[in-house]
Amino acid sequence: MKTVHFPTSKEELKSLKAGEIVYLSGRIITGRDQAHKRLTETLKAGKKLPVELKGQAIYYVGPTPCKKGEIIGACGPTTSRRMDAFTPSLLKQGLTAMIGKGNRSEEVRIAIKKEKAVYFSTLGGAAAYLKKRVLAAKIIAYKDLGPEAVYELEIKEFPAIVWIDSRGKSL
């Protein structure tokens, strides 16, 4: 199975085709509902974002609390659709990939095609399985949001379906 290493360039994501299963590895950031809301509000206000989005992959997740000695709690993807309204403006900032679960809106599909990004759907509900594939985790923004804070993660071989490829083809 093909492995995509993050961060990666849009050029390298070109070869991926909707429907294929790949492994995702490397460094990514996380963000879900409240983080998306804050990031877009910051952009609207013309202020600087607390995280760099250019060249990044964002994973929609809110992990369970971490036990002592663990890297992260259980950490499967949340439903991507709830992020749809915020996604086009983040893609404009140079975001290259999104990782979540399920379908996206038509607006998001068009924005992905325009920006030549890729949307992956990873294993929804397989939170214990994915937890074992996180090598490092640290909070980099919005700590006050608890499970919705923005983390930087180092992941190894997250299985994922290429759901919307850079040509805008959706599964």
């Binding site: 429907g19 509900g125 939170a127 299985p159």
Partner: peptide, 28 residues
């Protein structure tokens, strides 16, 4: 083929969760 791969991972997931007393899904 893809469906089988995913179902296999879901079976592995509940086994890991039970063994390590970790939530099966992060949305508890």
């Amino acid at each position: 083929k893809n469906a089988r791969f995913i179902l296999g991972a879901l079976v592995e997931n509940y086994k890991i969760a039970e063994k390590e007393s970790t939530p099966i899904c992060q949305d508890t």
